[in-house]
Amino acid sequence: MSDSSEALATHELRHHFENMEQQRGASSMGMWVFLITEIMFFGGMFMAYLAYRYEYFLAWQEGSQHMNFWIGTVNTAVLICSSLTMVLAVLAIQQGRRRLTSIMLAVTICFAIAFMVLKGMEYHEHWLAHEFPGPAFHFAGIDPRHVEMFFVLYFVMTGFHALHVLIGIGLVSTMLYMNERGHFSADYHNPIENTGLYWHFVDLIWIYLYPLLYLIGHHHVG
């Protein structure tokens, strides 16, 4: 560690920690504990999905067939790519390459925006097809009442996920801004790491939403 980076590291050490190592460990562990609260938050919705899929099996098949399979699949790929660029941003700052970090963060934001745009197109399509739950909901097939519930859960789950994507865009943008202002270095980059953890978590949720919503009834069409 050079003298200047050591000075910087001491500057970033908050008063109540003994050393940087303790601070880093606490911050990473805190983020993980936060993420398991997020898992339980989404867990409530997964529980509702599971119980109702068991009770209203056919309606769930029907509903799943009205998902836009291609947008769902492309969005899955988009999020995986954004996870890659995010982890590369963390790698870059670990190596002290600030310029590369900024580029990778910017690309991550672009992927996230692409995801939101595709999601918006998908919602718009459902809106036109009268698939928004509520008075305007119309479904011609069997058991429309429970198909409507499938759509309720679809919008609630993807809606809360999209909210997390938006928060993620905000966080990554903040990291980009702070990195441009020279806040981070090879010795101090906890916030970028934690933002990375958050972003991968958003990807993780989608990895499960994709089969549960898009794939589970798909084969009847194909």
Binding site: T37, M40, G43, M45, A48, G134, L153
Partner: peptide, 27 residues
């Protein structure tokens, strides 16, 4: 967090008439 999402769903069902738990709406 499970209480949080449960109360959120109650709020959504009440405000927008989305069927999650109400048996009249299929829940």
């Amino acid at each position: 967090p499970v209480l949080a999402i449960t109360l959120a769903l109650v709020g959504l069902e009440r405000m927008f008439h989305l069927g999650v738990f109400n048996p009249q709406l299929g829940g």
